[in-house]
Amino acid sequence: MGAIMKLRAIDPKVVYLLLFIVLAVPLIRPIGLPIEVSMYAQRFYNQVEALKPGALVFYSLSFTVAKTVEFYPQMVAVTQHLVAKKARIVYASWLVDNPPLVEKLFTDLSFEKRGLKYGTDYVHLGFIPGVATGMASFARDVHKTVGADYGGKPVGDLPLMAEAKKAQDFVLLVGFLSINFDQFVGQIQTPYKLPLVVGTDGVSFAGMLPYLSAGQVMGILNSMIGAAEYEALIRVTGKGTGYMDAQQMSHFLIIALVIVGNVAMIMQRGSRRESR
């Protein structure tokens, strides 16, 4: 009976310790669990795969620094695919702490070594303030809203920006958005009816599905799962795949503990009835 009581109300510290172990072990010794690609990631992939060489893509970020571990693997995988498709990309951020991550992306993916030329193949505009107002202004007139790029160079001096003057000039919108997603859809995607694919975190994923069924969003990457799925699609092993073993093991642990707790609760109720 004592054992049942303990299983029924497991000390949170025990839960934390077990969780730490199931997260740490797969990170140190990966298991290599198989990954099934969801339709949400497949649709995202299809949109990028359909791009013609030279297509102009707008790539923007809006997530807090703390969520980098969920978003960055997605960004790496998607950017690798965009570069392979020879897309020309304009990068921007709607939150002040996102631009350094874009710079890190360029370094980690060795843009210079790949022969990508700044100003012709890609441009980084940095942080655009104002959220909804900034988005509306950007969509209407890019050059008026952003006078200079992240490094301070006037946008008029960048050859790529001669073709990127308003939202309709972009063939595809790629957003890594957690907060400000509604504003992005309302100010840029819907008024100009542009195709949008979104990478997001686990908490926001469920809230984006109505946009998917309404056709406002064409594909969604769900947190690290989405990154792992995308890596599977582009046949690359990256951090997303590496982290999925740990994440899945933590899910299995929680499921097991929930089931154990409920079975213990039912058994305790049964033994109480018997003793009466």
């Binding site: 109300a9 497991i10 949170p12 839960v15 934390y16 969780l19 730490f20 997260l23 807090t64 620094v65 703390a66 969520k67 980098t68 571990v69 702490d97 933590s250 642990l253 929680i254 503990l257 929930v258 707790g261 409920n262 609760m265 039912i266």
Partner: peptide, 26 residues
């Protein structure tokens, strides 16, 4: 900035686990 923000954010995973185990009951 990044490690300290992520460290506090990572508490969420542990808290979700303990909350789920405690409250998902029939």
């Amino acid at each position: 900035l990044y490690p300290s923000d992520t460290a506090v954010w990572s508490l969420l995973g542990f808290y979700i686990a303990s909350a789920a185990v405690r409250t998902l009951r029939i």
